[in-house]
Design a protein around this nucleic acid. Structure first.
Lengths: 154, 154
DNA sequence: GCTGAAAGTGAGAGGAG
DNA sequence: CTCCTCTCACTTTCAGC
């Protein structure tokens, strides 16, 4: 699938505000509302638009503390990897995770209530797991996401 | 501001699908559409709902490679921190960044076209910067975000 | 603070260019 | 592929509960 300038405009607008009405979307992209509707339907079907998510203030949902936990697995077998992967996906404290190349295999972004919660969680969800060889926890002072599209998406 | 069960329901629904029509939102939360509208307006005004963002397939916008770059600053002065912070916010390759406690000061999630782009970018945006003392780059095999709310948000 | 009706507006489908 | 029109459904406001 090949995207043109109008597709990038629609993506850029939806990336900044996913609840923008179709009418406004069309106007700002310089096309008719029905055309915008059709384009967005196609972008979704092609898997370019994967979803729309609300961003929620962490403190409002009881997240007073965020941390990054580096995890090194005991071995690099496929079975162990899959098992740990599935485990990560089931933890509500996990906000996001990265599977990376390097000495540590995973980097896990977690959100917890307080430091006691963090200690208990790190112990139960990582240290006590058979797949895990070693973890390292870093507190997050600030986390920010970027809603811009790359420069070449003109 | 104190949230009740219905607020959490609305947040949970919008977190999973930010484009869900208000009517459906109300129905699934068990309230009238006008009530849902009012509640969401208040959640936005209170800063609980901070925004709505589309999730876009990286490859579709020319991101063939993602990496995590650990950055250590030369000193920990406020001026240097602010300067580097502002710099990060202006880079389109930066998808997100963490300001963390520990030996490294920042962890930057970047998306680039290919390995040549990554090398050039790491050099120009980090290594050559006066604020930066040292960087370390790790390739990302997989990145996943969690759209669930914490367990206590019933 | 929630409900339900009423007015205004946008979404979405079908057909023409 | 894009636009226009038309219908239908949704959003949004407001008075009443």
């Amino acid at each position: 699938m090949t995207l043109d300038r109008i597709d990038f405009d629609l993506l850029r607008l939806l990336r900044k505000n996913a609840r923008l009405p179709n009418k406004d979307l069309a106007e700002r992209a310089g096309i008719a509302p029905s055309t915008a509707l059709e384009r967005i339907r196609r972008l979704r079907e092609a898997g370019v638009l994967q979803g729309f998510h609300a961003e929620i203030a962490p403190e409002a949902i009881g997240i007073g503390l965020q941390a990054l936990i580096s995890v090194r697995l005991a071995q690099h077998s496929r079975a162990l990897l899959d098992s740990f992967h599935a485990h990560l996906r089931g933890l509500p404290e996990v906000l996001a995770f990265y599977h990376v190349a390097g000495a540590d295999d995973f980097l896990v972004h977690v959100g917890v209530g307080d430091s006691a919660h963090l200690r208990d969680f790190a112990l139960a969800a990582f240290t006590e797991r058979p797949e895990v060889s070693r973890i390292e926890t870093r507190l997050i002072f600030e986390f920010q996401r970027n809603a811009e599209l790359p420069r070449h998406c003109t």
